[in-house]
Structures are given as structure tokens and as C-alpha cells.
Design a protein around this nucleic acid. Structure first.
Lengths: 120, 120
DNA sequence: GCAAGTAGTTACCTAATGGTAAGTATTGAG
DNA sequence: CTCAATACTTACCATTAGGTAACTACTTGC
């Protein structure tokens, strides 16, 4: 994160340090709904994310013990990602977040429509 | 955020762009529990945050319509921050997040204790 | 005339982040 | 002999974010 931003004794900041960052909560949300996704499937569901960043996120989540990586040495290789037990404890939070996100999105689109109508 | 990371049609990413970043969810959590805090009170409750970053976060939250800023031109000035209606809709999510954070923190401290005992 | 107290702002610097593009490994298919 | 497919890795670059520290404004009180 930042050079000096340490998750100093504050549990909230500690968890945020693990979850936060562009795409990360979204990755968790996808995994929490599908229970297992391959690298390419994740990439396809997350528009515009680069392989580099996706790998980075998954590695960090794995290091925090939130995501499990299952590498099958087939040819070509197959890698399944899924939530660990701890990772799946975030489901409720992510669901709540998603509900709010959808609600606000709808509200914002409605008021945007109002503006368009008013401008006519 | 990043030069190209646009909240591209994805409601989840859009809300994350507003909430995310070091300290931000914690600020919202504090405001959601105290319903009104002054700048200095916030700073006191958030160890190690700098005035610059705190100001920045509050300005951004204000711009997103999540936080209300009430400036009283007294001498010295007094500024109260509180959640807007929309901001307070995050209470449930933040509470869930905090519960998980406290639980994990406790679990981690327990296993840390185990390691200490085992090392004796 | 100077310090105190609140809520910032400003300047400057460094480290980390993310993007792009190209490369890697492996093996079966054509 | 080369391509295709998957899951990355690496190198390089530009931008950004955050940290520190000093400075501002305004009035009261000593």
C-alpha cells in the first residue's frame, strides 16, 4: 500500500489492507458466487483487468489465506481459484455491498434520465 | 485512482471507487456510529493519519455525497462532519465488515498465543 | 505584541502502482 | 516446423499517492 501505512492495531484497517485495492473486492465477490473459477474465467468476467494485476491480486489474496489456488499440471495448465473458509466469511459483507451498489446505480440512472427529460 | 481504471459500468467498482482507499471505510464507520464528529475528533480517533490525507478523504466523500460538511465560522472555526442519508446506507455493510475484522483479529491473536506457548 | 487554538493548505519528495507489450513453458495438432 | 492454448512473468515507463513539515487565517486573552 503506502510506505508507512501499517495496519496499526486497528482490526478494521488490517482487514481493509487485505481486501482493498482496485478489483479485489470484486474478485472476492465473483468467487463467493461461483465457488470456483479458473484464471481465464475470472479475467473474462472482469473487463479491462490485465493479467499482471489479476495475478497480483490473486497472489495477495492467497497469501492472506482468503483464496485457495488449485494448480493442475495439465497441458495447457489449469488453475482453479476458490475461497477458503475465511474468505467465504466475507460473503455477507460483499452481498450487502453489492445490493447498495445496485440500488445507487439505479437511483443515479433515474436522476440522469430526469436530467435528460428536463433538457428536452 | 489509476490513469485508466474507470468504474466501467460495474456498480460494484463504482461504489468501491468512492469508498476505497486507506482510512476511508474507517472514517465512514466512525461517522456512522457517532452521527457527527469534528475534524479534530476524527483525527484523534484515527491514529497516524495526516491532516492532508484526512482532508482529502473528507473532500472526496463530500463530493460523492456520502458525507455532509457543516462549517461554523466561529473563532476558531468549527466543522462538523456527518453522514448523508446515502452515506448512512453503508452502516450495515460497515458493521458486517467490523464484525469480521474483530473476529479474525481475535482468532489471529489466539493462534499467535499458541505459537508463543509452543515456543516455550 | 505574541501565543493559542481549529481546520486546514501548500510545497516537495519518494515509493508504489498500474499499464503495455513481449516473453516463457509445455505438448498435442496440423 | 509452427501454431494454439493457458497461465503466467518480466521489463520498462509514467503517474499517482502518501508522507513530512511548514505555513495560513482569524480572534481572544495575557
Amino acid at each position: 500500500m503506502s510506505p508507512k501505512h501499517n495496519p496499526n492495531q486497528c482490526p478494521m484497517e488490517s482487514i481493509l489492507g487485505q481486501i482493498m485495492g482496485p478489483w479485489t473486492p470484486y474478485i472476492l465477490w465473483l468467487l463467493s458466487n461461483e465457488n470456483s473459477l479458473r484464471f481465464g474465467e475470472l479475467a473474462a468476467r472482469i473487463p479491462d483487468i490485465s493479467a499482471k494485476v489479476l495475478t497480483d491480486r490473486l497472489r495477495k489474496l492467497e497469501a492472506s489465506g482468503l483464496v485457495h489456488r488449485d494448480y493442475q499440471p495439465t497441458v495447457p495448465p489449469t488453475v482453479y481459484y476458490s475461497l477458503t473458509t475465511r474468505g467465504s466469511e466475507l460473503h455477507g459483507v460483499l452481498q450487502g455491498l453489492n445490493e447498495v451498489a445496485l440500488r445507487w446505480d439505479e437511483e443515479d440512472r433515474l436522476t440522469a434520465d430526469d436530467r435528460k427529460i428536463a433538457a428536452e
